[in-house]
C-alpha cells in the first residue's frame, strides 16, 4: 500500500477496505509499552511501514526508522489536523492520543535507519544524479532555491528537531512529498519554506533530487 496521498499504488476500493480493517485493529489496540520498546500499536504501522520501519520504497511508503521523534510526532498531529492532507494517515492519526503519538514517534526514532535503497548510483542517469547532487548541496540560482542540505543536514542526514533526514529515503515518497508541497495538500511547515522551495522545482528537478537522496546512506549520528 502506498501512503502518500497523490499517487497511490493501490486501487481506491481495496484501499478503503484496508482502512476499515485497520481502524478495527486501532480500536482494539491498547498502548502499554515504554518508549524505545516495541509499542503494541505498531502493528498498525507495520502493515505498511514494515516490521522495522523500513518502509516500502517501491510503493512510496517512507522509512520511519531512525527519523527524528519530534518530526514524526508533528506529522502525526498534522495528519489529524489536515495540514498534511492524506486520507489514509488521517484515519490512523485520528485514533491516537497524545501519549500514543509520542510513544510511537520515539519508538521509530530509536530504530536503526536502513542502508541505501534499491536505487543505486550506478542505476540512475549520471547527469540527473549530478543535478540532484547540485540541488542538494548548493541549490540553483536561476530557480532561486537554496541547497536542501542547509536545513536537512550534511548529505541529507537530517537536523533534528524539525528537518527530517532524506538520505536513504524512498525516492517515490520524496517525489510525492515535493509534489504535495507544490499542490498545497501539504502545508504543515512554519513559514511555508518547503512550499516556496517545491514550487520552484520542475518535474525533472523533483525526480533528480529525490533519486539523489534515495541513493545515499543515512549518516550515523
Amino acid at each position: 500500500m502506498s501512503t502518500d496521498v497523490d499517487h497511490c499504488a493501490v486501487h481506491t476500493a481495496s484501499l478503503l477496505l484496508l482502512i476499515v480493517s485497520l481502524q478495527v485493529i486501532a480500536a482494539n489496540c491498547s498502548v502499554a509499552a515504554e518508549a524505545g520498546t516495541r509499542a503494541a500499536n505498531t502493528a498498525l504501522c507495520e502493515s505498511c511501514h514494515g516490521a522495522n520501519g523500513e518502509g516500502d520504497p517501491e510503493a512510496g511508503v517512507p522509512v520511519l526508522a531512525g527519523q527524528s521523534a519530534d518530526y514524526l510526532e508533528k506529522q502525526l498531529r498534522d495528519y489529524e489536523n489536515g495540514t498534511r492532507d492524506n486520507p489514509i494517515m488521517r484515519n490512523f492519526a485520528k485514533g491516537l492520543s497524545d501519549s500514543e503519538r509520542a510513544q510511537l514517534s520515539r519508538y521509530y526514532a530509536s530504530l536503526p535507519a536502513p542502508g541505501p535503497h534499491a536505487v543505486q548510483v550506478a542505476a540512475v542517469d549520471q547527469r540527473q544524479w549530478a543535478r540532484g547532487q547540485q540541488l542538494a548541496h548548493q541549490g540553483a540560482e536561476a530557480e532561486r532555491v537554496q541547497g536542501c542540505n542547509n536545513c536537512h543536514g550534511p548529505d541529507g542526514s537530517g537536523l533534528p528537531h524539525s528537518a527530517p533526514y532524506l538520505a536513504g529515503q524512498s525516492a517515490k515518497y520524496l517525489a510525492n512529498a515535493l509534489k504535495s508541497w507544490q499542490q498545497g495538500t501539504r502545508k504543515n511547515d512554519s513559514g511555508q519554506l518547503m512550499v516556496s522551495v517545491a514550487k520552484q522545482l520542475s518535474a525533472d528537478d523533483i525526480a533528480a533530487v529525490s533519486d539523489y537522496f534515495s541513493s545515499l546512506k543515512v549518516a550515523k549520528n
Binding site: G139, R144, N150, V197
Partner: peptide, 20 residues
Amino acid sequence: IKLNTCVFCGFCERYACEHF
C-alpha cells in the same frame, strides 16, 4: 523577485544568507 522565509539559523550579521 521572490524571497523565502527565514529559518532563524543565527548567522545573519557578518554572513550572507543561504535561504534567499
